[in-house]
């Protein structure tokens, strides 16, 4: 929801980044205010995941220019874990499997890291159990997933739900969901979208990266941005998604190339 005079949570200006020596992001600009939902769409390889990973601090990408201010602080100066603790959350397009680390331990360590950062006492295993069971309800996950290794042998949909479970637990200020809808059947999509909507409030903001307008029927965006070749080339309202679904990306790309808005 667009709220007048609400705080800017994220401000990205002219962000450029390389992987190895190759430029991938070529001047990203984005401003996200509290309460807003933004969608990023764009062809394969246009830099959507790269953008999200650069925000989260992935070491494979070198920032070569521009700035990112997150709640008034220079995000790029922070370590990935500091970014997470100060409220950035990235639901990965391809969540990793981590054999041998139990999902429950992982979630508890993550949760306690955040508590510690906030100067709060760490919760013990017993209290954590209660908390996590409540959160499981949000994504309609079975408790048996807790005793398994992180994402190991999870189906595609289960991995995505596990990401949203982490989001529910960590209550981020800014959640970036990278193709959390891809590969989900309609029931799973409803569950995931329902979970995200429950977590959305006027104090936080959500950026969803998606290829499908289908998701945007459940998570209704205030803005839609189209990326191409490492930049946002067009921004519009939610109706843009329908148009993209109907007409594809070519017309936006062409319009951007000739400098004509149509």
């Amino acid at each position: 929801m667009i709220i007048d005079h609400s705080n800017v949570i994220l401000s990205v200006k002219n962000l450029t980044a390389n992987v190895d020596e190759t430029p991938i992001l070529k001047g990203m600009n984005l401003e996200v205010k509290a309460g807003e939902i933004h969608a990023i769409m764009g062809p394969n390889g246009s830099g959507k995941s790269t953008f999200s990973k650069v925000l989260a601090g992935h070491p494979a990408y070198q920032v070569t220019g521009g700035e990112v201010i997150f709640q008034g602080q220079d995000l790029l100066a922070l370590e990935p874990e500091e970014r997470a603790r100060s409220g950035i959350f990235l639901a990965f397009q391809y969540p990793l499997e981590i054999p041998g680390v139990s999902n429950l331990d992982f979630l508890r360590v993550a949760y306690n890291s955040k508590r510690k950062h906030q100067g709060l006492e760490e919760v013990d295993a017993f209290d954590f159990d209660e908390l996590i069971r409540e959160k499981l309800g949000i994504v309609k996950m079975d408790a048996s997933f807790l005793s398994r290794s992180v994402n190991e042998g999870f189906s595609g949909g289960e991995k995505k739900r596990n990401e949203i479970l982490q989001m529910a637990l960590l209550e981020p200020k800014l959640a970036i969901l990278d193709e959390t809808d891809s590969g989900l059947d309609i029931d799973a999509l409803r569950i995931v979208a329902g979970g995200v909507n429950q977590l959305s409030n006027p104090e936080n903001a959500i950026v969803v990266i998606t290829h499908y307008q289908r998701l945007l029927e459940y998570i209704v965006p205030d803005y839609i941005h189209v990326t191409a070749n490492g930049r946002i080339i067009r921004t519009g309202g939610k109706e843009l998604a329908l148009e993209l679904e109907e007409r594809g990306y070519d017309w936006v790309l062409e319009a951007a190339a000739t400098g004509v808005a149509s």
Binding site: G57, E79, E81, F92, G100, F106, V109, A110
Partner: peptide
């Protein structure tokens, strides 16, 4: 990185993975 992105210190993350 996955563990760090959930707020876990890099040293704790390494420790968790070694233990795993």
């Amino acid at each position: 990185f996955y563990l760090q992105s959930r707020g876990i210190d890099v040293s704790d993350a390494r420790q968790l993975l070694v233990y795993a």
